[in-house]
Simulated scan of single mutants.
Amino acid sequence: MSQNPTIAVLKMMSLILLTIFYRMKTKVCISEEDSTINGATVGSHPDVERVRRAFQNDLETIPAFMIMSFFYLWVPVPDWVVHVLYYLFLVSRTLHSFVYAVYVIRQPSRAICFLIAFLILIYISVHVAIYGFIAGYLRV
């Protein structure tokens, strides 16, 4: 099986570290007790919020992809199709995070990256559903 779902999770975890980095850099924290550590202020900062939104966006697609990519392994498709879809999903999600949280590029770059990953997720999900329906129907 391709390791891409695992790499996607590691990419998500890197956004957590990036959030911490920006919180320390801007000296902004979310709770009163954290403000005593390095003289930080309680509140938000646009850089921190941008990374948090990128992470939230990952939470909207990557867990579903992990589940559906697992089931997709039982659908009879050529291995190269699985690899192309998984790698394309990983690349598009990584680029999405990069242009959202690290090096901001104006739209539609982020939207295109999101759409590619989202369409792959829809395709895999529909393919699994159709295969499951057909396989269940033929057994009866």
Rank of each mutant, 00 (worst) to 15 (best):
M1V: 12
N4M: 15
I7R: 09
V9W: 05
V9A: 12
S14D: 02
S14Y: 02
I16C: 13
L18I: 06
L18H: 07
T19Y: 05
I20K: 05
R23M: 11
M24D: 11
K25P: 02
K25L: 14
K27M: 12
V28W: 01
V28D: 01
C29E: 11
C29R: 04
C29T: 15
S31T: 14
S31H: 06
E32G: 00
S35A: 14
S35T: 05
T36I: 02
I37L: 15
I37A: 13
N38T: 09
A40T: 06
T41M: 15
G43W: 06
S44V: 05
S44E: 10
H45I: 13
H45F: 06
D47K: 08
D47N: 13
V48Y: 03
R50D: 08
F55P: 02
N57Y: 02
N57H: 13
L59W: 02
L59Q: 03
E60H: 08
E60K: 08
T61P: 00
T61Y: 04
I62Y: 04
I62N: 05
P63Y: 02
A64Q: 06
F65S: 10
F65I: 08
M66L: 15
I67Q: 09
F70R: 14
Y72M: 02
L73G: 09
L73I: 02
W74V: 06
V75R: 07
V75F: 08
P76V: 10
V77L: 00
P78N: 10
D79L: 12
D79E: 14
V81Q: 07
V82F: 12
V84Q: 04
L85T: 03
Y86G: 03
Y87E: 11
L90V: 09
V91T: 12
T94R: 00
T94N: 00
L95E: 01
L95N: 09
S97N: 12
V99T: 02
A101P: 01
V102L: 08
V102N: 03
V102G: 02
V104T: 08
R106F: 03
R106L: 04
Q107M: 13
Q107V: 05
S109I: 05
R110D: 02
R110W: 00
C113K: 03
I116E: 05
F118K: 10
I120C: 07
I122W: 13
I122V: 15
Y123R: 05
V126K: 07
V126S: 10
H127L: 04
H127K: 13
V128M: 07
F133G: 14
F133W: 11
F133S: 15
G136V: 00
Y137D: 03
V140Q: 10
